[in-house]
Design a protein around this nucleic acid. Structure first.
Ligand code: FES
Ligand code: FES
Lengths: 143, 143
DNA sequence: TTTAAATTATGACAAAAATCATATTTAGGA
DNA sequence: TCCTAAATATGATTTTTGTCATAATTTAAA
């Protein structure tokens, strides 16, 4: 469903949502290790997310990555769009130019409406919501 | 969602479902061209599908690829499993070892039940069903 | 039984995704 | 001001995926 890159990015951002704050920035090593993602690769991904202002960062001593309060309003789809591109989730299952109920491919009616619901879910929950869910123990962040 | 390989494979099998029969086998060129897939690559994919007895083929003069009546009972998930592997559809969105409501990742409750419905849909319609749908003009096979 | 037309098997090559390495820039603290 | 710890920029390398080419095998028909 997602590329590894996006999975890595989501895990890292959720980790930041739970553990970081403006006052408590986290260094790349301390993100990569607990979520079990190759450090140098994750660095690249987080740099991209930072450039696209999905997450925040400061260089130098006492620097690191973190989520600002603004960042916490974002949702999962924002992350996917930055790393995998918007097409990943929007495009037709069989790569028709556009996925459209007027001109549906053979798989359209088997998946479209569910896919829309998933998309809506991805958009409707903020990172903050997901962090709270995690903190309350109702979900876990895989290794 | 799917790899290109799987998309190619699905398109080709659906093409065969609509246009081929035991009496009317179709040569790789005449499949690859209408569905707009690189011929040599498609050949490889169809050979794999044939090995896994998802589709049928005969060599030599008057040979080609086709779907037997048995083949037509298959479904989309069978194709995906052969080309992309079963994990593609079954695995957790964040690559937890196993996707399980007892130990859900942060995205589980946003997507799991819809994903199951899609999966069920992929399993419940036979290639024959999809071919009929196509023939009746209710769906199209993208370029 | 020979020939032509097809799949099958094999592998070389190219492009994209993932991984690793390192030099540069920035910011805080001594 | 200078040193150190951090992100950032850049790019090399590896692995996976997708693509292309071709020789070997099989089958039907002449
Ligand atoms: S047209 Fe293919 S999924 Fe909608
Ligand atoms: S546990 Fe991740 S999707 Fe189910």
């Amino acid at each position: 469903m997602f590329s590894n890159s996006t999975k890595y990015a989501i895990k890292a951002v959720l980790y930041l949502a739970v553990h970081s704050s403006e006052q408590h920035k986290i260094v790349i090593n301390d993100i990569a290790e607990p979520i079990n993602v190759p450090k140098a690769y994750l660095a690249k991904l987080l740099q991209e997310l930072s450039r696209q202002s999905i997450i925040s960062s400061t260089k130098g001593l006492k620097g690191g990555f973190y989520l600002s309060n603004k960042d916490r309003e974002r949702n999962i789809k924002d992350i996917i769009d930055v790393i995998d591109g918007e097409d990943r989730l929007n495009s037709c299952l069989l790569s028709l130019k556009d996925c459209d109920s007027k001109n549906p491919c053979s798989l359209h009616h088997l998946a479209y409406s569910q896919k829309q619901i998933i998309l809506d879910n991805f958009k409707s929950k903020s990172l903050n919501d997901l962090a709270m869910h995690l903190k309350s123990g109702k979900s876990v962040l895989p290794l």
